[in-house]
């Protein structure tokens, strides 16, 4: 009797959208455990926790921050292809102002403002001029890295590397054995969550993404909401940019955060949101970013030749999305006798 209850509960779990990405994450980690026997070891090295699991969390931070901003934009039925370029611009701004000798706290502020300005630009094109998001953000995606290079050129930075206790502290430092960036990410996540869910902004974003015309008639200023979503995305990308730039101690506009927009979109989709807009899942987006990073890390430790990396990544991502597809799932349960309701 209780067996049946448990079974029913497990069957009901199938319909919980959190199950599949978490299952994928668990599977990836289990496979890692087989590949590398000491995969789950966590030690203390140089006054911080050290191990593969920590690495996955640590490396997932920038990707998760970008993806969170992307989730908001995708919620409005939009997309932001320019996040990688925003990171490039932020990096260049940081390197430039550090060479100029500004206080580093102020530089942190400048970097976030740079991201916000990029977001304002995207928001203006999409909400103000009504350009399709994929085209509107393509503009900055293409131009942004050039702008980063120009900033580097502008102050003659042939070697745009720098040292900053504050920024590197945020990025690669640690507090009580735990990498600081995890606190940074947690703080930003909670701030964004509060902004979206403790105010009515989330409802407005989802309403606008679901049906902009109806939202307008219901009194929601859909253009303003859309605009604001891009600004949020810009600021989140800038935060990721600070962490990535401080991590490598250098501004590298040409190649920093290459393809990060694709990983961010993927994380949002693995998190269960639809590119058709109308829903924002912040927590699940973070899980999505963790899935992608766990995958990247396990490919790196697998010892497979690098030629296989992208193919394996594509295959696993396909499998996750396949599991999430309702059509695929109902086809599977039709194949398994007794599996259907």
């Amino acid at each position: 009797m209780s067996d049946r209850g448990t079974l029913n509960r497990i069957i009901a779990l199938r319909h919980n959208r959190a199950v599949w990405p978490l299952l994928a994450l668990a599977l990836i980690l289990i496979v890692d455990g087989f590949i590398s026997p000491n995969f789950f070891d966590i030690r203390i090295v140089e006054g911080r926790l050290f191990g593969n699991l920590i690495d996955i969390l640590y490396r997932a931070v920038p990707a998760a921050l970008i993806a969170l901003g992307m989730a908001v934009v995708i919620g409005t039925k939009g997309i932001d292809l320019s996040v990688g370029s925003i990171i490039a611009i932020c990096g260049a701004v940081i390197a430039w102002r550090i060479q100029a000798g500004d206080p580093h706290l102020l530089i942190l502020f400048y970097a976030l403002v740079a991201g916000a300005v990029c977001g304002v630009w995207n928001g203006f094109l999409v909400a103000g001029l009504g350009i399709q998001p994929i085209i509107a953000t393509l503009v900055l995606m293409v131009a942004g890295r050039g702008i980063g290079l120009l900033i580097n050129l502008f102050y003659g930075g042939t070697n745009p590397s720098f040292e900053s206790e504050l920024l590197q502290g945020l990025s690669t430092g640690n507090i009580w054995l735990i990498p600081t960036r995890l606190f940074v990410a947690l703080g930003l996540f909670l701030a964004l969550w509060a902004l979206i869910r403790r105010t009515a902004l989330g409802l407005f974003i989802e309403a606008v993404g679901g049906n902009a015309a109806a939202s307008n008639l219901a009194g929601v200023n859909s253009r303003l909401v859309t605009f604001f979503a891009y600004v949020i995305c810009g600021v989140m990308a800038a935060a990721a940019g600070v962490i990535m730039t401080a991590d490598t101690h250098t501004s590298d506009p040409v190649s920093v955060a290459m393809y990060s927009e694709l990983d961010a979109i993927l994380a949002v989709v693995i998190g269960g949101a639809s590119l058709a807009g109308g829903r924002v899942f912040l927590g699940m987006t973070v899980i999505g970013a963790l899935v992608i990073q766990a995958l990247t890390t396990s490919i790196l430790i697998s010892g497979l030749p690098p030629e296989y990396n992208l193919v394996i990544k594509a295959l696993v991502v396909m499998a996750v999305l396949f599991l999430q597809s309702d059509n695929a799932r109902s086809a599977i349960s039709r194949l398994i006798p007794g599996g259907s309701r």
Binding site: V45, N52, D55, T248, D252, A257, L300, I301
Partner: peptide, 26 residues
């Protein structure tokens, strides 16, 4: 004993070396 692509970038080199450090026991 181990080879991976770091895509010619600082970011890539750092990520790959971090993984090597774990997979080769420091």
């Amino acid at each position: 004993v181990a080879t991976q692509s770091g895509d010619f970038t600082t970011e890539g080199g750092k990520k790959v070396m971090e993984a090597f450090i774990k997979s080769t026991n420091n």
